[in-house]
Every structure is written in structure tokens, then in C-alpha cells.
Lab assay of single mutants.
Amino acid sequence: GETKIIYHLDGQETPYLVKLPLPAERVTLADFKGVLQRPSYKFFFKSMDDDFGVVKEEISDDNAKLPCFNGRVVSWLVSA
């Protein structure tokens, strides 16, 4: 499998796309960081919350699996 991750960088209009050679349910924050090489950023991901619906959730645990929608991951990188 392959996972497409779209990421928005510090408010830039056009998002970036990276592809990881892993199925979406196995991709972790560490996998994503390894491709990006951007150490001083906070990582937020499109996520579903039972109370609020669609939210941007910050993930900082490198072992955390990334939230996935239709085989895609959507993220926002914010300068720390």
C-alpha cells in the first residue's frame, strides 16, 4: 500500500504532497517526520472528534498512528 499525506506549511496557500510506501493504517508520526526533515515544527492532523466533528489535532508522539480519511492524511505544520 501507499499513503498520500498532504501538508500545509505555515499558512502557505498551496499544500504539499508526499507519498509513503506504507498502508495508511500503519503510518506513524516518525515515518512522516523522516520524509520531511523539518525538526522545529508542530504537527497537526485532520481528525474526527466525537463531540466536535472534524478538528485539527496536535500529535507529538512519534509512535502515534496518523488519522486517515479515505486513505489520505491531511496535516498542518506550524513553526514551533
Rank of each mutant, 00 (worst) to 15 (best):
G1T: 10
G1D: 10
G1V: 09
E2T: 11
E2M: 09
E2P: 06
T3D: 07
T3E: 04
T3W: 02
I5M: 01
I5T: 07
I5V: 09
Y7I: 02
H8S: 04
H8N: 04
L9V: 14
D10E: 12
D10R: 03
D10H: 05
D10L: 01
G11L: 08
G11Y: 08
G11N: 13
E13K: 13
E13G: 08
T14E: 15
T14F: 11
P15H: 08
P15K: 08
Y16R: 14
Y16G: 06
Y16H: 15
Y16K: 13
Y16W: 05
V18H: 09
K19I: 15
K19L: 10
L20A: 00
P21V: 02
P21A: 10
P21I: 05
L22N: 00
L22H: 04
P23S: 07
E25M: 08
E25I: 04
T28M: 05
T28R: 08
L29R: 04
A30N: 07
D31Q: 04
D31I: 10
F32L: 08
F32V: 01
K33H: 04
V35G: 01
V35C: 12
Q37M: 12
S40R: 09
S40M: 13
Y41M: 06
K42C: 04
K42N: 07
K42D: 00
K42S: 03
F45N: 07
F45H: 01
K46M: 11
K46A: 13
K46H: 11
S47A: 12
S47C: 15
M48C: 14
M48L: 12
M48N: 15
D49W: 07
D50C: 09
D50Y: 09
D50H: 10
D50I: 07
D51L: 09
G53F: 08
G53H: 15
G53T: 13
V54S: 11
V55C: 14
V55I: 14
I59E: 03
I59K: 03
S60A: 10
S60H: 14
D61E: 09
D61A: 05
D62T: 01
D62N: 09
D62C: 00
N63H: 11
A64C: 08
A64K: 08
A64F: 02
K65F: 09
K65R: 12
L66A: 01
L66E: 06
L66D: 00
P67K: 00
P67Y: 05
P67S: 04
C68M: 09
F69E: 11
F69K: 10
G71P: 03
G71N: 08
R72F: 15
V74F: 12
S75K: 00
S75C: 13
W76S: 01
L77G: 05
L77S: 01
L77F: 01
V78E: 12
V78S: 05
A80V: 11
A80I: 12
